[in-house]
Simulated scan of single mutants.
Amino acid sequence: MKLFSLVLFIMFSSFCVSQNDEQEKAIKTITTFFEGFHNQDSVLIKSVVYKAVVMQSISENTNGNLELTTTNFSDFIKQIVAIPKDHTFSEKLLSYSVQIDGNMANVWTPYQFWYNDKLSHCGVNSFQLLKVNQEWEIFYLVDTRSKCQE
């Protein structure tokens, strides 16, 4: 019985370590994305996205109605690179929640977005990742955007 318990413990421990390693790799993909974002580095951003990435946002329009908008990835890159150097912007991720099943992962990240040192909006990013050649790549990103308190 002790041997059986030991074998189960070893199998469970290796699964947990493997799962934690994959979670850390998924988080690294997100941190690399934001490193590129904050440095306006399109090459770095593109290094962690899948060839057919979809980007959407959920917010309220000026009339208070729900709005789902889709952003073309190439346009997103152009917008980020075009931000004047004398403007500051930062998306501060508050935490990470990672779920993985085989070659798919979800990384949920509540955030605050700061522009020129003022809190612009808050929300949550939901990144969907696909494992390609042992690396996690972002294939879908949806975020929520709302007013928030400092």
Rank of each mutant, 00 (worst) to 15 (best):
M1G: 15
K2V: 11
L3R: 14
F4T: 11
F4E: 12
F4K: 13
V7S: 04
V7T: 13
V7W: 10
V7I: 15
L8M: 12
F9I: 11
F9T: 14
I10V: 15
M11K: 04
M11A: 14
S13R: 03
S13K: 03
S13I: 07
S14H: 06
S18R: 06
S18H: 10
S18A: 12
Q19N: 11
Q19H: 10
N20S: 11
N20I: 03
E22K: 09
K25G: 01
I27N: 05
I27F: 06
I30Y: 01
T31K: 14
T32N: 11
F33Q: 05
F33S: 08
F34L: 12
F34Q: 09
E35K: 14
G36D: 00
G36T: 04
F37E: 04
S42D: 14
S42L: 06
I45A: 03
I45Q: 01
K46G: 04
V48G: 07
V48L: 09
K51S: 15
V53I: 15
V53H: 08
M55I: 15
M55G: 01
S57D: 10
I58R: 08
S59E: 13
E60F: 07
N61I: 02
G64M: 04
L66V: 05
E67V: 10
L68M: 13
T69Y: 01
T70N: 11
T70K: 15
S74E: 15
F76G: 08
F76A: 10
I77L: 14
Q79S: 15
I80V: 15
V81I: 13
A82Y: 03
P84A: 07
K85E: 07
K85R: 12
K85N: 12
D86I: 06
D86N: 15
T88E: 07
F89E: 01
F89I: 05
S90G: 00
S90D: 09
E91P: 00
K92V: 12
L93P: 05
L93S: 06
L94A: 07
S95L: 02
S97H: 07
V98G: 03
D101L: 08
D101N: 12
G102I: 02
N103H: 10
M104S: 09
N106A: 05
N106M: 08
Y111L: 00
Q112S: 05
Q112Y: 02
Y115I: 09
N116L: 06
D117M: 06
D117T: 07
D117C: 03
K118R: 12
K118E: 15
K118D: 01
L119M: 01
C122I: 00
G123K: 02
V124N: 12
N125P: 02
Q128R: 11
Q128P: 02
Q128M: 11
L129T: 09
L130C: 07
K131N: 13
K131E: 10
K131P: 08
N133I: 06
E135D: 14
E135H: 11
I138C: 09
F139R: 09
F139P: 05
F139G: 03
Y140C: 06
L141K: 10
D143T: 02
T144W: 02
T144P: 05
T144L: 09
C148Q: 02
Q149Y: 07
E150T: 03
